[in-house]
């Protein structure tokens, strides 16, 4: 019988459960040789890897050496508490999303998107919304369940909110390349603030995406969800459809209770 993992203390799996084996690869700016190998092992120990072993190393060019090191990671994470976050959602396929919208919402879900402010990067938003999609997976425009409005790049926040109200959007998607400069953050918070000022904050899902966007950052910014690298249109589509269905269920319970 297969052993089951203790989800409150999950460790990396190498050859068998809980052995904690990990492999790290890195380059050091030191010449190839035994001293370099020694340095790599020292570094692995400072990473708190126990019993580190250099399984491969090679000269990259003069003064640089590349390493593959394996070792044991004794730390664990508590998956049992983590998995209960809002994003432990089972992603649906395009067909399943369309069916969920048809059966539970009964009309097309309106999604509007843009790259806002001075941001000219529309690759992310185009991949999510446009027919072509990403990596062979359709953008939301191709779904029967979605009505999509893509305003393109460098759209002022006020204009995006105005269009969102005009088309009665269920969800607003923005993409932004966030850096440590306040400017990018302030452009994202401005959208949330204008949506609040215009009275649509509670009836519109606000979703941001970008290479450095996390759930934690999305929450600080005031968005309902944040998507980062590795996101496909069906992920965003699943979130929108499921969240709208969940909100309808809560609204109807409250209405019954009241």
């Amino acid at each position: 019988m297969r052993e089951t993992a203790d989800l409150s203390a999950v460790r990396p799996y190498g050859d068998h459960l809980n052995d904690g084996l990990v492999q790290v690869t890195f380059t050091l700016p030191v010449p190839y040789g035994l001293a370099a190998r020694h340095a790599a092992l020292e570094l692995a120990r400072t990473m708190r890897l126990t019993e580190p072993e250099v399984v491969h190393y090679q000269r990259l060019c003069d003064g640089y050496t590349y390493f593959v090191v394996i070792g044991q990671c004794r730390q664990s994470v508590d998956f049992a508490t983590l998995r209960e976050g809002a994003f432990d959602i089972q992603y649906l396929t395009e067909h399943e999303i369309d069916r969920l919208i048809e059966e539970q919402i009964g009309r097309r879900v309106v999604v509007i998107g843009a790259s806002t402010g001075t941001d000219t990067h529309s690759v992310g938003i185009d991949a999510m919304l446009n027919l072509k999609g990403l990596d062979g997976r359709h953008g939301l425009e191709a779904y029967h369940g979605f009505e999509v409005h893509n305003l393109g790049s460098q759209v002022p926040n006020a204009r995006l909110v105005e269009r969102a109200i005009a088309v009665n959007a269920d969800a607003i998607l923005v993409s932004q390349t966030v850096t440590q400069q306040n400017l990018h953050l302030h452009n994202l918070t401005e959208l949330v603030e204008i949506a609040e000022a215009e009275g649509i904050r509670d009836r519109t899902l606000l979703i941001c995406g970008g290479p450095r966007v996390s759930h934690e950052l999305a929450k600080e910014l005031g968005f309902d969800a944040g998507f980062s690298k590795g996101t496909y249109p069906d992920h965003v589509g699943t979130y929108i459809a499921k969240e709208l269905v969940a909100r309808r269920a809560i609204a109807s319970t409250t209405a019954t209770a009241g």
Binding site: G85, A86, E216, A218, K219, D224, A225, R247, A251
Partner: peptide
């Protein structure tokens, strides 16, 4: 509450 956030309800 009925309010959801990216970090949970």
């Amino acid at each position: 509450t009925g309010y959801s956030t990216p970090l949970g309800r």
